[in-house]
């Protein structure tokens, strides 16, 4: 209902603004990555690793400011290093996963704080990297998001049978001769790239919500992993556009509104599910 109303009345007006068109494009492009990768994050229950990767990326934002380059470019090495670091430490050095995540999470934030402190002057737009601002996405960032989107889609298409195997039954995948640790690292790197994409939309603090909620809601209606990916993308687009519109109407922060919309839908479906389970007992 609400979405129809938007289409008929409000959206065309909004679309006269170029920044609004960019915002819509950013919402759709980022939803592709977070629907595909979020599906793996949810079925493998690795949301906390994803949160760790995202927060470590704050170091990259600091690096971007310090070197005077696009903070999004600074995030890429940091999130990839976090993905590989957390992944390899837990698998090769047998360090407890939550410990490794906590260490990287805090170290990344610390590096970011120090580098921003060392940067002369004040850090403009810092808030938008922390909590997202979909209304200020420049075309150059859209291009970067598109490239990362394509990389993720191609990788997932190439390795779909391997990724399904390590997600469903890692032990069996290993017995079948797959190099599961390498595939695992590849998947964590794809999560890292998704984090880069999502930073513009919801910021590093809230990436974890958009990476998990659309997929978690989609799982209730999906019979296959690919179906779940498709549905996650649709949910993510719906949350982003609904959040964007509400933030426009009420003049509040866009990233936070998107997350709130997603959270409310998530809670509603969780309650429906809980009710169904208690009725069937």
């Amino acid at each position: 209902m609400a979405a129809q109303l938007v289409n008929i009345t409000t959206m065309p007006d909004i679309l006269h603004f170029e920044f609004m068109r960019n915002a819509l494009l950013a919402a759709i492009l980022s939803s592709v990555a977070c629907g595909i990768i979020g599906t793996y994050v949810v079925v493998r229950k690795i949301g906390f690793i994803s949160g760790g990767i995202a927060h470590t990326a704050f170091g990259g934002i600091g690096l971007g400011y310090y070197l005077g380059v696009n903070p999004l470019l600074g995030i890429i090495p940091f999130s990839l290093a976090a993905a590989l670091g957390i992944g390899l430490l837990t698998r090769k050095a047998k360090i407890a996963e939550d410990t490794a995540i906590g260490a990287f999470w805090a170290a990344g934030m610390a590096i970011g704080v120090i580098l921003i402190g060392l940067t002369p002057g004040y850090a403009p737009n810092l808030f938008s990297y922390l909590f997202g601002n979909i209304l200020t996405v420049p075309l150059s960032d859209l291009a970067l998001i598109l490239i990362l989107d394509l990389m993720i889609a191609v990788m997932v298409w190439l390795f779909s049978k391997e990724f399904l195997a390590i997600s469903f039954d890692e032990e069996y995948a290993r017995i079948s001769g797959l190099k599961t640790v390498r595939l695992d690292m590849l998947m964590l790197c794809l999560i890292a790239l998704t984090v880069v994409i999502m930073v513009r939309v919801v910021g590093i603090v809230m990436v974890i919500a958009l990476l998990t909620i659309p997929a978690a809601v989609a799982r209730n209606f999906s019979r296959t992993l690919h179906g779940m990916m498709g549905l996650s993308i649709l949910f993510s687009v719906a949350f982003s556009i609904a959040g964007l519109w509400l933030s426009w109407v009420f003049d509040v922060a866009s990233g936070a509104t998107i997350i709130l919309v997603a959270s409310i839908v998530f809670l509603a479906t969780a309650l429906v599910k809980a009710r169904r389970i208690s009725l069937s007992r």
């Binding site: 399904l164 195997a165 997600s167 469903f168 797959l178 296959t224």
Partner: peptide, 14 residues
């Protein structure tokens, strides 16, 4: 896990 019996068995071909 959203997977059919068929797709689990297909994993045997891995």
């Amino acid at each position: 896990f959203p997977i059919s019996a068929w797709d689990v068995v297909l994993m045997g071909r891995l």
